[in-house]
């Protein structure tokens, strides 16, 4: 089972109500919002209606909200090499 990973790159402001309705139906309410849908003809048709606004990738598994957040997070860039003794709680 594969999934579409759809990200809204450009906003739907100023477009016909029908186009904005497709974005709303896909759950794309803000720019850079990412949603996952299984690969079906229905979703493919919706994607075709708003193909100028989104970027689509096919992935194996949908990511959760937390995983998407982790993906955006930069690397901490440090770790504690030598720790001072801590007070034992």
């Amino acid at each position: 089972m594969s999934y579409f990973r759809i990200t809204l790159m450009r906003s739907g402001i100023g477009l016909p109500k029908r186009t904005q309705g497709v974005l709303k139906a896909l759950g794309l309410r803000h720019r850079m919002k990412t949603v996952f849908y299984p690969v079906t003809p229905e979703v493919a048709g919706q994607i075709m209606k708003v193909k100028e606004l989104i970027s689509v990738r096919e992935v194996e598994k949908p990511l959760t909200k937390e995983e998407l957040r982790e993906e955006r997070k930069p690397d901490p860039g440090y770790y504690i090499e030598t720790a001072m003794p801590r007070r034992q709680a």
């Binding site: 690397d75 860039g77 440090y78 770790y79 504690i80 090499e81 030598t82 720790a83 001072m84 801590r86």
Partner: peptide, 13 residues
């Protein structure tokens, strides 16, 4: 968070 004075951090990026 999670560090106290005296800790040595390794910067790796």
């Amino acid at each position: 968070p999670g560090v106290v004075p005296g800790d040595i951090l390794r910067l790796n990026r």
